[in-house]
Design a protein around this nucleic acid. Structure first.
Length: 405
DNA sequence: CTTAGGG
DNA sequence: CCCTAAG
């Protein structure tokens, strides 16, 4: 079926193995497919240039002239592409669901081939972080009369991943893994699977979590198998001087201690160096990778799924520097992400385009969907210049701006 | 060293 | 993701 997610859907029912909901498979399928098609427009542009980005952003050419500033880009974002944009209003929380979802989680944990990836990058330090201070974020969020799924909030969420999150992933995490406080369990494969799962449970049980903005989007964001990565950050050395002081807090932490099986045999080396890991600004989990990768086979040992947040950064980055400026994008948008080299970013973009192209072939109604799903950006947001952002060098390199100047 | 391409 | 060739 589709290039992203559809394959997963096929296997979906299995995820519920041992769970008595055989007769709801159809509902699940329908729900998933619906959400899938909802975001198809996100990938429908086959063009290998900034037009694609433009499409991603839901920005029209009429906006090109004024969309030079980072801040504008971020706020000019059309979040309606988020699958739950519409459905969330009807999402209410029922405590009765907690138990249910926990069971689902357990089921999934068994399915996941790499359980430790539950602790995968909780890197929510989206572009918003460096664009404006948290207060600014919240202010703007409140100004955006509509933010049904709390998508913007999830940006500020990264400031206190495990503390006072009342929206977005953190909340979801807490609810799904109630006894995991102090451990931000949210990410990668599990997050994806669960998001789509519990999301579809809404339709089945008329309930759900309040905010799961990423939901289905994650289903296609990380198609590949979970893998770990243990490579040197080539461009890191000069990052600090490039962008300046980095945030003292690491958002990409993933506790490696825990009851999970994969960590049982973890050596003391891992535990001992845990502190260092947590303190490091990048908190790359090289050690964890090294250990867990033993059981993995060659190429698959280093690999992590792309989170929605990362894809957003990618798209945002390309919007600023243009396709091909992978190093710049890495430095400005992925500095808090220890992994993801410029090449990785490039590859991801290539895959997205591929998916986009493939998708356009087997679905003729995508274009229409995209149009309708990209409402005009409020001028109030487009013309916001109050926030000073970090330097955005070489904007002239942006091919789009050149082309339409 | 960075990017593009192929594996 | 990795590796390699080309700028």
């Amino acid at each position: 079926m589709g290039p992203f997610g559809m394959d997963r859907i096929t296997d979906f029912p299995q995820a519920f193995a041992g769970f008595n909901c055989q007769n709801v498979d159809e509902n699940v399928r329908h729900s998933v497919e619906e959400k899938m098609s909802d975001m198809k427009h996100f990938l429908m542009e086959p063009k290998h240039d900034n037009f694609a980005v433009d499409s991603f952003l839901g920005l029209g050419m009429e906006n090109m002239g004024i969309s030079y500033k980072m801040e504008e880009f971020s706020h000019g974002y059309d979040f309606s592409f988020l699958p739950d944009y519409r459905g969330l209003e009807s999402c209410t929380t029922h405590d009765g669901d907690a138990g249910l979802k926990l069971e689902i989680l357990d089921g999934f944990l068994d399915e996941v081939d790499e359980v430790e990836d539950i602790y995968a990058s909780h890197d929510l330090s989206s572009v918003g972080d460096r664009i404006f201070p948290e207060t600014e974020v919240k202010k703007k969020v409140s100004e955006l009369d509509g933010d049904p799924c709390g998508f913007l909030n999830f940006s500020s969420e990264s400031y206190s991943p495990g503390i006072s999150g009342s929206n977005g992933l953190s909340e979801w995490s807490k609810e799904t893994v109630p006894r995991a406080e102090s451990q931000n369990v949210s990410s990668g494969k599990v997050k994806e699977s669960l998001d789509s799962t519990s999301n579809n449970m809404h339709g089945l049980y008329e309930s759900g979590d309040d905010n799961k903005p990423l939901s289905t989007l994650g289903s296609w964001v990380g198609q590949g198998k979970n893998r770990k990565k243990n490579l040197v950050n080539t461009s890191r050395s000069r990052l600090d001087s490039f962008v300046g002081p980095m945030s003292p807090v690491s958002y990409d932490f993933r506790p490696r201690k825990g009851p999970l099986k994969k960590y049982i045999h973890t050596t003391t080396v891992d535990v001992l160096s845990d502190d260092d890991q947590q303190t490091s600004s990048e908190s790359d989990d090289d050690i964890s990778v090294r250990i867990t990768s033993k059981s993995r086979t060659d190429r698959r040992k280093h690999q992590r799924m792309w989170t929605v947040d990362e894809v957003v950064k990618l798209v945002d980055g390309i919007s600023h520097f243009g396709v091909g400026k992978w190093t710049d994008i890495k430095n400005h948008f992925f500095q808090s992400v220890s992994h993801r080299t410029p090449i990785d970013i490039r590859d991801k973009w290539r895959n997205l385009l591929k998916a986009s192209y493939t998708d356009k072939h087997n679905d003729g109604e995508v274009e229409e969907k995209r149009r309708s799903a990209a409402p005009p950006i409020p001028k109030d947001i487009l013309h916001r210049n109050s926030v000073t952002v970090y330097e955005v060098p070489h904007m002239g390199n942006w091919e789009m701006s050149k082309r339409f100047e």
